[in-house]
Amino acid sequence: MAKILIVDDAKFMRTTLQTILTKSNHEIVGEAENGEIAVSLYKKNKPDLVIMDITMPVMNGIEAIKKIKEFDVNALIVVCSAMGHQKVVVEAIELGAKDFIVKPFDEQRVLETVERTLSFITS
């Protein structure tokens, strides 16, 4: 069971991810609707994994990844993005995100990506 922080400006997306992840016995330790809140929740809750949307108000996912990685170089981050945003996904990966999932979410793919990314903890 992993402690996961979900970051997305759409409440519906956060709820969808929370449902998928809690069914697989993961613990949701926080939800944020923008990058600024995400960074502060990361520092407070030290989750095992962050699922980070890219396009958000106040502070986008790219900026939030930079700030989280400055705070914790070993942070595990998976970005989520709609189709057609390959350029930003590549930028996120270059900044240290481990993987990505595409919206709309496919439950099986989300779980596979989460498990694969969490394997970095034990390796």
Results as ranks from 00 to 15, higher is better:
M1S: 15
A2C: 09
I4F: 10
L5Y: 07
V7N: 00
D9M: 07
A10W: 09
K11F: 09
R14K: 14
R14Q: 15
Q18R: 15
T19W: 09
T19S: 11
T22C: 05
T22F: 07
S24Q: 15
S24K: 13
S24T: 05
S24W: 13
N25H: 15
N25F: 13
H26E: 12
H26Y: 15
E27I: 09
V29F: 07
G30C: 04
A32H: 01
N34W: 03
G35K: 02
G35E: 06
G35H: 02
A38L: 00
A38M: 03
V39W: 01
V39E: 01
S40P: 05
L41D: 02
L41C: 06
L41H: 09
Y42A: 04
Y42K: 03
K43D: 10
K43M: 13
K44F: 09
K44H: 11
N45G: 06
K46P: 01
L49S: 03
V50D: 03
I51W: 02
M52K: 01
M52V: 06
I54K: 02
T55R: 11
M56C: 08
P57F: 11
N60T: 08
N60L: 06
G61F: 03
G61R: 00
I62G: 00
E63D: 15
E63S: 14
A64P: 06
I65K: 00
I65E: 02
K66E: 15
K66Q: 14
K66V: 14
K66Y: 13
K67N: 15
I68F: 09
I68C: 05
K69Q: 10
K69C: 08
E70Q: 14
E70V: 05
F71R: 04
D72T: 08
A75V: 08
L76A: 07
I77F: 10
V78L: 09
V79D: 02
C80V: 13
C80Y: 01
S81I: 07
A82I: 10
M83Y: 15
M83Q: 12
M83I: 12
G84Y: 14
G84I: 10
H85F: 13
K87G: 11
V88E: 14
V89L: 04
A92D: 03
I93T: 07
I93Q: 08
E94P: 01
E94K: 15
E94W: 08
L95M: 09
L95D: 08
K98H: 13
K98G: 02
F100N: 05
I101S: 01
V102G: 00
K103A: 04
F105H: 06
F105Y: 15
E107D: 15
Q108A: 10
Q108K: 14
Q108V: 11
R109F: 01
R109W: 00
V110C: 03
V110L: 05
L111T: 08
E112Y: 03
E112T: 13
E112W: 03
T113L: 05
T113K: 04
V114I: 13
V114K: 01
V114G: 01
R116G: 07
R116Y: 12
T117L: 07
L118K: 12
I121W: 12
T122K: 12
